[in-house]
Amino acid sequence: MSITSPHLSVREDWLSLKTEEVLDPGQPIVDAHHHLWDRPGACYLFPEYLADVRSGHKVVASIFAQCRSMYRDSGPDEMRPIGEVEFINGVAAQSASGIYGQFRACTAIVGFAELTLGAKVAPVLQALVRAGGDRLRGIRNTTAWHQDPAIRSNPQPPPPGLLSSDKFRQGVRCLARENLSLDVWAYHTQLNEVLELTQQNPDLSIILDHVGGPLGLGPYAGQRDAVFLDWKASVAKLAALPNVTVKLGGLGMKTTGFVFHEQPKPPGSRELAEAWKPYIETCIELFGPDRCMFESNFPVDKGMCSYLILWNAFKRIVERYSQPEKQALFSGTAMRVYRLSPNIVADHAAMP
Rank of each mutant, 00 (worst) to 15 (best):
V59Y: 04
A186C: 05
R291D: 07
Q200M: 13
H57T: 02
S5F: 03
H35A: 04
G250W: 03
Y100H: 15
L215V: 04
P342D: 08
V235S: 04
H261Y: 13
H57F: 08
A313Q: 06
L180W: 04
Y338L: 11
Y71E: 09
P324I: 06
F314A: 08
R135G: 11
Y44D: 03
Y307C: 07
I207S: 02
L180E: 09
V172G: 03
P219G: 09
R39W: 11
A144E: 07
E193K: 06
G303T: 06
L215C: 02
A349M: 13
A186M: 01
E285R: 09
L340W: 09
Y338E: 11
H34W: 06
G268E: 08
V129F: 04
P40N: 11
N192S: 10
V211A: 12
D31L: 00
E262I: 05
G118W: 06
D290N: 10
L23I: 10
T256M: 12
P76Y: 10
R104S: 12
H34K: 00
T142H: 08
A176H: 12
S181D: 05
R316S: 07
M335S: 14
R339P: 00
Q327H: 15
V30Y: 06
S205D: 15
V184F: 01
L8G: 09
A127E: 13
A127R: 12
D38W: 03
K265Y: 12
A273W: 05
C67I: 10
I317Q: 10
L195Y: 09
L308K: 15
Q190D: 00
K237P: 00
R39S: 02
E78K: 08
P155W: 00
R224N: 09
D31K: 00
L286P: 01
R169T: 11
Q66R: 04
L217H: 05
L204P: 05
A186G: 10
T282L: 14
I206S: 07
C43E: 14
D166I: 15
P155A: 00
T255I: 13
E285C: 05
I206Y: 01
P25L: 01
L238Y: 12
Y338R: 03
E274W: 13
A65M: 15
S164P: 02
R173W: 03
P47L: 12
L329G: 04
K302Q: 15
T245C: 11
L217W: 01
H261D: 12
N312T: 08
R316I: 02
I88Q: 06
R339L: 08
G212R: 01
V60T: 07
A150E: 14
S322D: 02
T107Y: 13
K58C: 13
V184M: 09
F64E: 00
K58F: 02
M79I: 11
